[in-house]
């Protein structure tokens, strides 16, 4: 029996060694190669990146036209992705997009866990989120929009009395719906992502859906059975967020954004995804 125990102990040590393989690497060293090749950022301290040579950006799919997967290329693309590409280029690195739970991005958990450098997920800047993970300068203005099935007769929140309203978890649309629930008496149904909520309107599982105007108009365009009947001017602005401990990256994002706005790159990207010039 002694040998059996010895065998077991040896094997236990082996697995311990295996599990111990998870290496405790230091928060990735600054991308020296990247910073060296770009003169734009070389003056400021190079931002820390979770994996060298890459700007790892967390997003939450699908949120067209801000971020969605292009089936032909199997890559994530969209307005936010293009803007982050500009930021990555200014740092001399390439962007890698990771799809994750939206709440983990806004709470800053993805930065604390070392999953991503920045979040670009059409995130509305709020005080609470700002405190958890600081935002860049705003890059897009948004309102909340109400999506219904055509011919439903619903035109505003009061029409939803006794009906169901689809919201997306952890979004400002959900907060807005919750704020107005007592006055209008609808039932809130929470969905994991934007398309599932909007599709619930299509399938009849919900009578209406509330989400940011950009995506809702895009959804109504590709699904002619649905329409946006009302927009609520909530005065929201999107921002990219980063870790609290990475002010260098935040500065680099703001710098790249300002440069893109100044030289027309921002307008080109805006026009590519929304078909109109960016509002001044």
């Amino acid at each position: 029996m002694k040998r059996l125990i010895g065998f077991a102990a040896g094997a236990a040590a082996l697995t311990l060694a295996l599990t111990g393989c998870a290496n405790y690497s230091q928060p990735a060293a600054p991308a020296t190669t990247g910073a060296a090749t770009t003169d734009a950022t070389s003056s400021a301290a190079a931002p820390k990146l979770v994996s060298a040579g890459k700007l790892t950006v967390c997003t939450h799919l699908s949120y067209p036209p801000f971020q969605f997967k292009d089936e032909a290329t199997n890559k994530i693309t969209g307005f936010d992705v293009d803007l982050m590409d500009v930021v990555a280029k200014s740092l001399g690195v390439t962007q890698e997009v990771v799809d994750i739970d939206f709440g983990q991005i806004t709470s800053g958990a993805v930065f604390a866990a070392g999953t991503c450098d920045a979040g670009a997920a059409a995130i509305t800047i709020t005080d609470e989120r700002q405190a958890a993970a600081p935002f860049s300068d705003p890059y897009f203005a948004a309102t909340q929009a109400l999506l219904v099935k055509k011919g439903s007769g619903i035109t505003d929140l009061p029409d939803l009395k006794g009906k169901t309203l689809a919201v997306q978890t952890d979004t400002t649309g959900k907060i807005y719906a919750e704020k107005n629930v007592d006055a209008n008496g609808y039932e809130i149904k929470v969905f994991d992502d934007m398309p599932t909520g909007a599709n619930a309107v299509l399938s009849g599982a919900a009578d209406a859906a509330i989400n940011d105007n950009g995506v809702m108009f895009d959804f109504a365009k590709s699904n002619p059975d649905t329409e946006v009947v009302k927009e609520f001017a909530t005065g929201e602005h999107y921002g990219f967020n980063t870790s609290k401990d990475n002010p260098e990256l935040l500065a680099a994002i703001n710098k790249a954004l300002a440069a893109a706005k100044a030289d027309g790159t921002y307008n080109t990207i805006y026009k590519k995804w929304f078909g109109v010039d960016a509002p001044k």
Partner: peptide
Amino acid sequence: VYVLGLTTGAFELTKYGREMSSTYG
């Protein structure tokens, strides 16, 4: 696995199908 956060290159079958299903309704 999707809860870990994935790049498109690391998508597995369910995530792949779900993503596309919700895109096209």
